[in-house]
Design a protein around this nucleic acid. Structure first.
Length: 326
RNA sequence: AGGCCAGUAGCUCUAACGGAUAGAGCACCGGACUCCAAAUCCGGGUGUUGGGGGUUCGAAUCCCUCCUGGCCUGCCA
């Protein structure tokens, strides 16, 4: 079966942008692919963080993955640092990756600006570790958002360079682009993200979620209730496309354009739809939070299975490199 | 290892000759307005001046030291 790999950083506070853009798609691939999903904690070390919180963040993130339906019976869910082969392969990849290529990565350039006082090698090496994440399992498919396509392309190049120099071991992975709409933050300008603080967390208090949605930016040209709006420029409508049934879209579109429904009505409908979908996940997450042993065991099983696959790849890699066997 | 420069609000920065309550723009928060928002208006500074010690009646400012970042020289694998 074709193999998929994807990872999510342990922010511990997964929001609806993550959910719509990644997690939901991950779930949809379960039946068709052999999926490996990872909480990529080593990636999170590239920026400053509170060491006392990291473990909990990874655990909370894993809980959300499981709660969303990434059933350990159907896929592998694990924490990146539990499978050391990721970082081992990253070192080998470092030796076939041209510096010029990684310097060109827009994420690196952005984060360098953002973390000017901590531009470290790891930040630069991030996409190389990502290539290792994927290729240590020889995964051929990587579900990602638009912004990560560049990194997947770098993985292809790394695979090609490695194969060219040391022998055919790795496939060239392809991005599976989500058709999900890109959800902007509550301020309506940039992508929803934890660091920008413009997010609606899927496990937040219901009242908190409503407050954030209620005060989220809409079509700025629709000033009065009687003004017609333009759903195409409204982040709320984008969210409807993600959460409301297909049939409802045209009606909401029309209602907005003809001012037959107001923005606050539109938000109420959306919130209802959102909660209908998220409530079971929120309830499941709550159960899992109270069953740490189950979650830890799932992660343990995931890591064990993944280590076996990764170890096999690394055996081949070391042989290809011509290293002295232990 | 040595040398030089820098560190002030969430961000970018300016001011304070050793003198009283450390400021501005943006961001943010509260209110008015609004169907909700946006815009606008009103209100709010959110700070251990990187940490510690010293000199002084008084230190962001002067001295020592440590930390962090940048630049340069050297040494080693």
């Amino acid at each position: 079966m074709k193999r998929v790999f994807s990872g999510i950083q342990p922010t511990g506070d997964i929001h609806i942008g993550n959910y719509v853009g990644a997690l939901r798609q991950w779930v949809s691939l379960l039946d068709e692919y052999d999926c490996i999903y990872s909480v990529v904690d080593y990636h999170a070390v590239t920026v400053e963080y509170e060491t006392s919180e990291m473990g909990q963040r990874s655990l909370d993130t894993a809980i959300i993955l499981l709660a969303c339906g990434l059933n350990p019976e159907k896929c592998h869910v694990m924490v990146q640092s539990h499978v050391p082969e990721h970082t081992e392969l990253a070192w080998v990849f470092n030796c076939v990756t041209p510096v010029g290529e990684v310097e060109r990565m827009t994420q690196f350039k952005d984060k360098s600006k953002q973390h000017r006082s901590n531009i470290n090698m790891g930040l630069m090496d991030y996409p190389v570790l990502q290539a290792a994440d994927i290729l240590v399992y020889r995964a051929g498919f990587v579900p990602v958002g638009e912004d990560q396509v560049q990194h997947v392309e770098l993985s292809r190049e790394i695979a090609r360079k490695f194969n060219g120099r040391f022998g055919q071991i790795f496939p060239e992975p392809e991005a599976i682009l989500s058709c999900a709409p890109k959800i902007l933050g509550t301020e309506g300008r940039s992508k929803m993200s934890k660091t920008l603080g413009n997010y609606i967390g899927i496990l937040e208090e219901e009242s908190e979620m409503w407050d954030k949605l209620r005060t989220a930016v809409t079509d700025v040209n629709r000033v009065r209730r009687s003004d017609p709006g333009d759903p195409e420029v409204c982040n709320i409508f984008t969210m409807h496309r993600a959460f409301s049934p297909e049939e409802a879209h045209s009606e909401l579109d029309k209602g907005c354009r003809t001012a037959s429904i107001g923005c606050i009505d539109c938000k109420r409908i959306l919130f209802k739809q959102m909660m209908a979908e998220l409530t079971p996940i929120r309830e499941k997450a709550l159960l899992l939070k109270n069953d740490r042993a189950y979650v830890m065991d799932a992660l343990k099983q995931g890591a064990k299975a993944c280590r076996a696959m990764a170890a096999e790849t690394m055996e081949e890699v070391r042989t290809a490199l011509g290293l002295l066997k232990a």
